[in-house]
Amino acid sequence: MMLTRERLLNWAMIAALLIVPLAAWSLDEPFIITLATKAAILALAGVGLNIALGLGGMISLGHAAFFGIGGYAMGILAAHAQNYEPLFAWPFLFEGSNQMPLIWLVAVVFSALAALVIGALSLRTSGVYFIMITLAFGQMLYYFAISWSAYGGEDGLSIWVRNEFPGLNTLDPIQFFAIAYVILCLALVFAARLARSPFGLALAAARQNEDRVEAVGLTPFTLRLIAFVISGAITGLAGALFADLNRFVSPTMLSWHTSGEIMIFVILGGVGRLYGPVAGAALYIMLEHLLGGISDYWQIFLGLLLLLIVLFARGGLIGALAGREKAHG
């Protein structure tokens, strides 16, 4: 392992994301912990998107669909559990659940399934058409959720108490943070290994030169579809955690603004950089928090800053701090 500047920076970042909430905990500032938890969860959503975007070169403007499906998986299971209304009675009686591991499993399975369907249809197109068709699928789900009155429609679903994780008190901010942080770290390890695996290398090759990959007998379509499904599943898991952080899920999670924001995390940090989403999400939340204090119109500054980064700081935050990246690795 070589100690590059980027690797040092990555370690520093992931350490900071742990130290800040721990410090806040000792100073009894629970809200800082909540902010850090939000950053960790949004970074996780970005890690998911980055697999499609950075590794696979698929510009999806519809990842809010998976984020929202994860959120609704949590909302629906927990709502049934809290109201003692069976979700279904056949083939066995199932009353929903307030156990996080089960909720995560359901969130991952359903967002992966959705990504399989959406991906299989969307990947027939490319370029701008791909951006737009993923946006269209996202909008489809958004309008469906708004009018799905059984689960709150536009009002969304509120969960009174955060779901449970065996052995932990999830209502304690620092313990819930720990859950989100560990999952983020696992996802980062997974994404790093994926990028270095034969599959990841083939995928990156397909991004750079499609013909060469076909020549060695691989189909780019299948490679991309698998990556899209993995990407959707991770973003879905983040959605379930995000809903649990807020104890609330609503169609807002499915709107195209959410897709845009997840993309912003990835790009603020640096596209294709493994830790890009972590840097991006942390920066975004700090900006929102600090700029919001300055002016009612803080989004103007956010827009200007984004614009400057896109125009002049290619490679995002990590690119600016760590210099140009040597190919993937």
Binding site: L61, G260, M263, L302, G303, L304, L306, L307, L311
Partner: peptide, 10 residues
């Protein structure tokens, strides 16, 4: 996409 999204905000 990103730059024009930023323009929307502005």
């Amino acid at each position: 996409v990103l730059a024009t999204f930023a323009l929307i905000l502005i």
